[in-house]
Nucleic acid binder design. Structure first.
Length: 360
DNA sequence: AATGATACTCGGC
DNA sequence: TTACGGCCGAGTATCATT
């Protein structure tokens, strides 16, 4: 039987900064993404646990977070996000994790799954994870919350139970009890909308969901989602770890001011495209879909995309396609001004696309 | 009707 | 009083093809 662990680095970006700047000891840390429009406009990316206690959280406007910090007369450091540095720390952590498992799945910059099946027992898997947590802390200074279970779903939900720096084990015989009393909202894949619809069916905890006839769930949510909810509520999940390949790459930014003028937007789009292109080259990847992301003055996000006849790595194609898509969007929305714009490429394939002219 | 590709939105972090 | 980023993958709607 499979034994799977999930590991989640605690308030990861904030932890990285604490490692880099030991003088921050005693202060709460808030990682910010500044929009560049004003001195302190932007949003919170990560709040460490001390900041969370004050009521500061991810997604919150920086101004609001600062207001909270001032009102509480708390000592809070607001630092700009440095993603490249966090990616370096993440790589070090992931390479430590690799030494502890036959196979790992890097799920994101701060999350990974481990296949610990060869540990033999849950007790041994627990010992392995204790040692792993210690080694990560000793080598990189960051802490992790971990969960162990019979599949990825249970392991991930277990790792959510005790944060920061926790370790929660759910053995196969404990899966039902573990899930039964948790609010449905905590089931991975249940957001506010699904939770509300479940509420209307008098389903409030995962145990209720597990007892609901799958047919009823299908009627409410459709075939795919109904079956998926039923399986998850019953603690069923995949034990297959995947070698994830990036499916898309994007850059998005906030414009200096709201505009619908192509002469303002074009240079920005080009800069974003150049950056996306640089990252594609680094990885020797080609793309065949270009998407532009636009956020209007009213904060409404929309996208327009186009799939090309063939994969390419051309920067010129990325420029021209994104400009056409932006143009089309503006023509279709003559009243709207844009606040933010982004460029995304998808349908990625590994390079090595030899030209086929030998056949032509 | 079934299948797969594409286009677009949503929400987690 | 309000305050508002930059990513990513999953989910869903829609379309083309058979």
């Amino acid at each position: 039987m499979a034994i799977i662990a999930h590991l989640d680095l605690d308030a990861f970006f904030a932890s990285c900064e604490r490692v880099r700047y030991p003088d921050l000891a005693g202060k709460a840390i808030v990682i910010c993404i500044f929009s560049g429009r004003g001195e302190e406009t932007g949003a919170v990316s990560t709040a460490d646990y001390a900041a969370r206690e004050l009521g500061i959280g991810a997604g919150m406007p920086i101004r609001q977070a600062k207001h909270i910090a001032e009102s509480a007369d708390a000592d809070v450091a607001f630092l700009p996000a440095d993603k490249e540095y966090y990616a370096m720390v993440s790589e070090r952590v992931m390479s430590i994790i690799e030494e502890y498992a036959d196979d790992i799945e890097v799920a994101s910059i701060d999350e990974a799954y481990l296949d610990l099946s060869s540990s033999g027992s849950y007790a041994d898997a627990v010992q392995e994870m204790r040692r792993l947590k210690q080694e990560i802390k000793a080598d990189t200074g960051v802490t992790a919350s971990t969960g162990i279970g019979p599949n990825k779903l249970v392991a991930k939900m277990a790792s959510d139970q005790d944060k920061p720096d926790g370790l929660t084990v759910v053995t196969p015989e404990n899966v039902q009890d573990f899930l039964a009393n948790l609010p449905v909202r905590e089931l991975y894949g249940v957001g506010p909308k699904t939770a509300q619809r479940l509420e209307s069916m008098n389903v409030t905890v995962i145990g209720d969901l597990a007892e609901t006839a799958v047919q009823r769930l299908i009627e409410m949510f459709g075939e795919a989602k109904g079956v998926s909810l039923h399986r998850k509520a019953n603690g069923e999940g995949s034990t297959e770890l995947e070698q994830r390949e990036k499916k898309q790459l994007s850059r998005i930014t906030t414009l200096q001011e709201d505009t619908r003028s192509m002469s303002d937007i074009r240079p920005v789009i080009r800069e974003l495209a150049r950056d996306v292109h640089r990252r594609l080259r680094q990885r020797d990847i080609q793309y065949s879909t270009v998407t532009v992301i636009v956020i209007s003055s009213e904060r409404k996000t929309r996208t327009r995309s186009r799939t090309l006849p063939a994969a390419t790595c051309s920067l010129e194609t990325m420029y021209s396609t994104s400009e056409i898509l932006i143009d089309e969007f503006l023509s279709g929305h003559p009243e709207e001004r844009l606040r933010r714009v982004g460029v995304r490429v998808g349908n990625l394939s590994n390079g090595m696309q030899e030209t086929l002219d030998a056949f032509g």
